[in-house]
Amino acid sequence: MPSFDTVLEPDMVEIRNGVDNSAKELATRFDFKGTSARIELKDKEISLHGDSDFQLEQITAVLIDKLTKRKVAITYLDMDAKIEKMGGDKVKQVFNVKAGIESDLAKKITGAIKNSKLKVQGSIQGDAVRITGKNRDDLQAAIALLKKEFADTPLSYDNFRD
């Protein structure tokens, strides 16, 4: 029975390149000279360090600019983290890189598949959603439906099997 997996997986190489480009720009910009402004990527966490909240906003703007130029969707970043006060006047903010489909999004995807009246079924498989159907055309219609319904979410479709 043909099937494919719907996943939410960022390209970590492009994210690393975007963070490295941001760090290079921070090192060369005049308004960051002599400050503690820096950006780091460890595992799936991007750490922003600066002297003030305003400086963190500027670093965030540089990061977003570099990631969008590398065609990385900003929705991969969990930007809800609070700004932490470090010693003195230093501040820090940590953005987590999201990977895998969360349970509420997976439920929405399976619900959209059921409501579409296509002859396919969706099942949640850990952090992915597996879509199965009788023929390839139905699966391609399901991919088109998901691209239309969840246009703001950078879903990818892999492991397509006949």
Rank of each mutant, 00 (worst) to 15 (best):
residue 21 N to S: 12
residue 16 R to C: 11
residue 145 L to V: 05
residue 69 K to S: 10
residue 15 I to Y: 03
residue 128 A to V: 12
residue 82 K to C: 03
residue 18 G to C: 08
residue 12 M to A: 05
residue 94 V to F: 05
residue 145 L to A: 03
residue 53 D to W: 07
residue 49 H to K: 12
residue 96 N to L: 14
residue 46 I to G: 08
residue 52 S to W: 10
residue 27 A to D: 15
residue 104 D to N: 12
residue 150 F to Q: 05
residue 39 I to L: 06
residue 154 P to K: 05
residue 77 L to W: 11
residue 22 S to D: 03
residue 140 Q to G: 09
residue 130 R to T: 06
residue 75 T to V: 15
residue 116 S to Q: 14
residue 47 S to H: 11
residue 100 G to T: 06
residue 16 R to I: 10
residue 138 D to T: 00
residue 51 D to I: 02
residue 37 A to W: 02
residue 27 A to E: 15
residue 144 A to G: 09
residue 67 L to D: 04
residue 53 D to I: 09
residue 107 K to M: 14
residue 36 S to E: 04
residue 1 M to R: 11
residue 63 L to I: 05
residue 123 S to E: 07
residue 44 K to W: 04
residue 146 L to R: 08
residue 155 L to V: 02
residue 12 M to W: 04
residue 53 D to T: 08
residue 113 I to Q: 07
residue 122 G to N: 00
residue 66 K to W: 01
residue 137 D to V: 14
residue 106 A to V: 10
residue 157 Y to F: 14
residue 115 N to C: 01
residue 61 A to R: 06
residue 154 P to F: 01
residue 145 L to N: 04
residue 86 M to A: 14
residue 57 E to W: 02
residue 5 D to G: 11
residue 26 L to M: 11
residue 25 E to D: 10
residue 22 S to R: 02
residue 125 Q to M: 12
